[in-house]
Amino acid sequence: MEYQTFLDNIYVVFVEAETPGNIGFLARAMKNFALQNLILINPCKLANEAYFQASHGRDIVNNSLKFDSLGEFLEEVPIDFVVGTTGMPGGSYRLSRIPLKPEKMVQSINSKGKIAFLFGREGNGLSNEELELCDITVSIPAHPSYPVMNISHAAAIIFYELFKNLYEFDVEGLEEASLVEKNYLLGEMDKIVKNVDLPPHKIKTANRAFKNIIGRSFITAREAHTLTGLLRRIKIKMGQR
């Protein structure tokens, strides 16, 4: 699938992870969004906690690649676009820390090459020097009382933004109602409205309002059939045919 080819070219880079649990949590978030390439830069020693917290993402931890430094990784792996993450966005005085929101970040990345997402240390994040290596910086807005997110939580938000436009859910029962099905529903409502002693102009207004609601909503075929059946039962209770 095309979206999987795109995801296969994404590298998730964790710089100097301090706890094995966060490595596992990050791998778990990656698994949720079909990402496979985990890069660990000078990490803490992997322990059982990393595999436990990874849950179904244990294979991602097992297959992770380790490098002594970020520079070594960027020299050995031909990355086309580097995205840095920061919980401490800056301004004009620190250009490398002028961030994009996640949804804007997705519009800015070069999706045809290899992309690296850099996540920094749990305590201090990425350094200014590391952010200088990035093409863009992304930050997630959070409440000022506690603006810095756990790495796995931030990563999941970013991964979701990458993934959400690539994959369509195939869920049974979500087929949109056809014009015929919508017209049956409108017809049943029209019969009820005509039987409640409204003036002609209000009948027209009521039918127009109901049609507007149906037109603006994404009504599924099953919902249309259910509502049509309900209106028919109301007609029977009212003594209509």
Results as ranks from 00 to 15, higher is better:
residue 91 G to E: 08
residue 116 A to S: 15
residue 25 F to W: 05
residue 241 R to S: 11
residue 10 I to L: 15
residue 52 F to A: 02
residue 157 I to P: 03
residue 31 K to Q: 14
residue 212 N to H: 08
residue 131 L to N: 10
residue 118 L to A: 12
residue 171 V to L: 15
residue 227 L to A: 13
residue 59 D to V: 05
residue 115 I to D: 13
residue 197 D to C: 10
residue 60 I to F: 09
residue 36 Q to T: 12
residue 3 Y to R: 05
residue 184 Y to D: 03
residue 180 V to P: 00
residue 119 F to S: 03
residue 217 S to H: 00
residue 201 H to E: 15
residue 94 R to L: 14
residue 229 G to C: 07
residue 158 I to P: 07
residue 204 K to E: 15
residue 51 Y to S: 03
residue 86 T to A: 04
residue 162 L to V: 12
residue 98 I to D: 09
residue 18 E to P: 01
residue 48 N to I: 09
residue 49 E to F: 04
residue 150 N to E: 02
residue 168 E to D: 10
residue 144 P to M: 04
residue 81 F to I: 03
residue 25 F to V: 06
residue 183 N to A: 10
residue 74 L to D: 11
residue 201 H to N: 13
residue 10 I to P: 11
residue 31 K to H: 14
residue 4 Q to C: 00
residue 119 F to H: 05
residue 174 L to R: 11
residue 16 E to Q: 15
residue 58 R to D: 10
residue 162 L to R: 03
residue 181 E to M: 06
residue 164 K to F: 07
residue 48 N to F: 10
residue 150 N to T: 03
residue 182 K to I: 02
residue 55 S to K: 13
residue 4 Q to W: 02
residue 103 E to C: 01
residue 26 L to V: 14
residue 162 L to P: 01
residue 19 T to L: 12
residue 145 S to R: 10
residue 92 S to M: 11
residue 17 A to R: 00
residue 133 L to I: 13
residue 114 K to Y: 13
residue 178 S to I: 04
residue 93 Y to A: 14
residue 26 L to D: 04
residue 143 H to I: 12
residue 229 G to N: 14
residue 102 P to G: 07
residue 140 I to T: 07
residue 221 A to L: 09
residue 89 P to D: 11
residue 17 A to I: 00
residue 223 E to V: 11
residue 23 I to W: 03
residue 71 G to R: 07
residue 167 Y to Q: 02
residue 38 L to V: 07
residue 232 R to A: 05
residue 117 F to H: 09
residue 123 G to Q: 14
residue 137 T to I: 08
residue 31 K to I: 08
residue 123 G to P: 02
residue 130 E to G: 09
residue 211 K to A: 12
residue 110 N to D: 15
residue 239 G to Y: 08
residue 208 R to N: 09
residue 137 T to R: 06
residue 181 E to F: 02
residue 189 M to T: 00
residue 79 I to H: 07
residue 108 S to C: 04
residue 224 A to I: 09
residue 117 F to G: 09
residue 31 K to P: 04
residue 125 G to E: 08
residue 51 Y to G: 01
residue 22 N to M: 02
residue 68 D to F: 14
residue 188 E to W: 00
residue 23 I to S: 01
residue 110 N to V: 14
residue 80 D to N: 15
residue 2 E to Y: 12
residue 132 E to P: 01
residue 139 S to C: 15
residue 19 T to R: 12
residue 83 V to W: 01
residue 79 I to K: 02
residue 93 Y to C: 06
residue 62 N to P: 11
residue 155 A to F: 12
residue 226 T to Q: 04
residue 237 K to Y: 11
residue 98 I to R: 15
residue 103 E to Q: 08
residue 82 V to Y: 08
residue 211 K to S: 07
residue 23 I to R: 00
residue 86 T to S: 12
residue 178 S to R: 01
residue 240 Q to S: 02
residue 55 S to M: 15
residue 174 L to T: 14
residue 22 N to I: 00
residue 35 L to S: 10
residue 65 L to E: 15
residue 126 L to H: 10
residue 61 V to L: 10
residue 203 I to W: 00
residue 175 E to I: 05
residue 43 P to F: 08
residue 221 A to Y: 05
residue 223 E to G: 13
residue 26 L to A: 15
residue 107 Q to T: 07
residue 94 R to H: 12
residue 202 K to H: 13
residue 51 Y to T: 11
residue 104 K to W: 01
residue 66 K to S: 13
residue 95 L to P: 03
